[in-house]
Amino acid sequence: MMAPVAEFRSACSTEEAVTWLAELGADGCVLAGGTDVMMQYARHELGPAAFVHIEGIEELAGVGRDGVVRIGALVTHRRLAEDAALRTSNPALADAAATVGGWQTQSVGTLGGNLCNGSPAADSAPPLLVADATVELQSRAGIRRVPLEEFFLGRRRVDRRPEELLTAVEVEPLGSRQAEVYLKVGRRGAMVVAVVGLAARLSFDARGAIAAARVALCSAAPTPLRVRSVEQALVGLDAALPGWQDATSPSLRDGIDALMHAVSPIGDLRSSEAYRRAVLPGLLARAIEICRARAGVGVPEG
């Protein structure tokens, strides 16, 4: 039995939070919405001396736009799912946020918490990866910017030092002739951790063929990951050609082969390894179809 947490400190500013984190070192635990922390605490998976509660730090709760979209660490899944401007600039992130737990989870669960928790199943990770996200970490020593792809080190391990606070995530908004989607497979339609999740951001040329692709996954490896080999294989794929979904089109077949090589799913209580592998090809094809529809390519005009 671990000692109960001795202290609860509520920070009013980033400055205050990073001062406390520096002082506490490994004895401190950042607490945002608590949807992961409180459960892990109840299960005796962590036993910090002090919680550093950050929900009251207003400067971390905003969304800014200046070429890139800057999303504060405290922005909740509910806001990501409902905010009209975010749904336009980063629709896959909105798709993902809407699948996190239930409304109760989304009300308090934050983007920063989802990333720092380091789960291989973090739903916000694939949409952020396809938007080339960079995370910003702040400590008393200064600010460090880390590409999200490098932030995930391993199962439940992220590149954050105990004295650092994740302050914001910067993402590229969708460009013209681009579309994106996040697809999640779960055991029911809601309130489930992903069996696998896949995000795709596709750019189309004037004819409607894929000009560039970004694809990322969760629950398919020890960390969420971008699959560049798949991205390369999809370039040139013309989903207007009949039969492309049946893997007769070379690009899709190459994409699926690359996908199967890139993943290393595990079998656990949510799904077998074989099932995870079995659903991925169909998910990739569906993502392409949805992106085409969302981008309005291949849809007859008039």
Binding site: L31, G34, H53, R78, W103, T105, S107
Partner: peptide, 14 residues
């Protein structure tokens, strides 16, 4: 906003 009170810290309600 609806939340699950079973996993939300009381101290955060100050």
């Amino acid at each position: 906003a609806p939340i699950d009170a079973c996993i939300y810290p009381a101290a955060a309600c100050a």
